[in-house]
């Protein structure tokens, strides 16, 4: 174990490792911000559904041999997010079924397309890395890193600017709408931000594990903290910590990046649950 610092110092010299860490931190920051809103609005599975849509979109991009598939994936995912949230508002149960339908459908069509048209020799490896993000974070090009940074900064700024409105719309949509908040627009905004986050996070953890990245930090923070602001700040910090730890561990131990990050998230969730129980027992 004495070799760990040396090993880290060695890896630090490679730009792709630095990129991976920087992008990992930004993506995990973004994905944690809307976690509370999604959990409380009972939209946890929208992240899952959308990531499958993004998988399908990536398959389409692969079929057309697009070298930079992010813009197309972003477009398709955003449109799906808007459509899903719209149906979800009109009828809860139908919205649920719509998520399931779209997500499973695009997963199947995506895999089918990749099978039919793929030129790559290692198809199952490609699929696996799209689903679980096994190595993609370490193979980001400079353009992708720039795009990731740009999108993350936009997401964070938008969240800060609309923080109070997102709170009002999440806590009590009827009251907000009745007192003149344009809830439709803010729900749309939330949908677009979710879509951007999903596409970003696919690079980090792959499409099957995105929900974990969005939900775990928020749930952990909610075990212990009691106000919206403290929960938001705490889940952002937790999320950054988890992905830093996860990336470092995966580099040192040679484990897949995405699932290592999620594993760290799970451990912290358990710790925070216990902590919350202990604090809850003391509080009157």
């Amino acid at each position: 174990m004495t070799a760990v610092p040396d090993k880290l110092a060695l890896y630090w010299q490679y730009p792709f490792v630095r990129y991976a860490l920087a992008v990992g931190v930004l993506i995990s920051l973004c994905s944690s911000l809307l976690g509370v809103t999604l959990v409380l609005k009972r939209f946890s599975f929208i992240g899952d559904g959308l990531s499958h849509v993004a998988f399908g979109a990536m398959a389409i991009a692969a079929v057309f041999n697009l070298t930079n598939d992010m813009p197309l994936v972003l477009l398709i995912t955003t449109v799906s997010a808007v459509l899903l949230l719209r149906t979800g508002q009109n009828a809860r149960i139908k919205g649920d079924a719509a998520v399931a339908m779209i997500s499973v459908g695009s997963l199947a069509v995506g895999y089918l397309l990749m099978n039919l048209f793929s030129t790559s020799g290692n198809l199952s490896g490609d699929v696996c890395s799209t689903l679980f993000g096994s190595t993609s974070i370490l193979t980001l090009t400079k353009t992708e890193v720039r795009l990731c940074v740009l999108l993350s900064v936009i997401v964070v700024l938008a969240f800060i600017f609309f923080y109070h409105k997102i709170f009002a719309v999440t806590f009590d949509e009827s009251f907000a709408a009745a007192t003149g908040v344009r809830t439709g627009i803010y729900n749309l905004l939330i949908a677009v931000i979710i879509a951007v986050i999903i596409v970003l996070a696919m690079n980090l953890v792959g499409s099957l594990l995105i929900s974990a990245l969005v939900i775990f930090p928020a749930l952990s923070a909610m075990r212990v903290f009691k106000s919206f602001r403290s929960v938001t700040v705490c889940s952002a910090l937790l999320s950054i910590l988890c992905s830093l730890l996860g990336i470092l561990i995966s580099i040192l131990a040679g484990t897949p990046v995405g699932s290592t990050i999620v594993a760290v998230d799970i451990v912290l969730f358990l710790l925070f649950s216990i902590l919350g129980k202990m604090l809850g027992g003391v509080r009157t």
């Binding site: 709170f167 009002a168 009590d172 009745a178 007192t179 003149g180 923070a221 106000s227 919206f228």
Partner: peptide, 28 residues
């Protein structure tokens, strides 16, 4: 116009302080 709606299930596990909830009345 001020409005006191019936409580929704969301609010039962919403982490928000009294201060945050009251202040959100100005959002409109």
């Amino acid at each position: 116009i001020g409005y006191l709606p019936q409580q929704t299930p969301i609010q039962r596990d919403f982490p928000a302080s009294v201060w945050e909830v009251v202040l959100s009345g100005f959002e409109g």
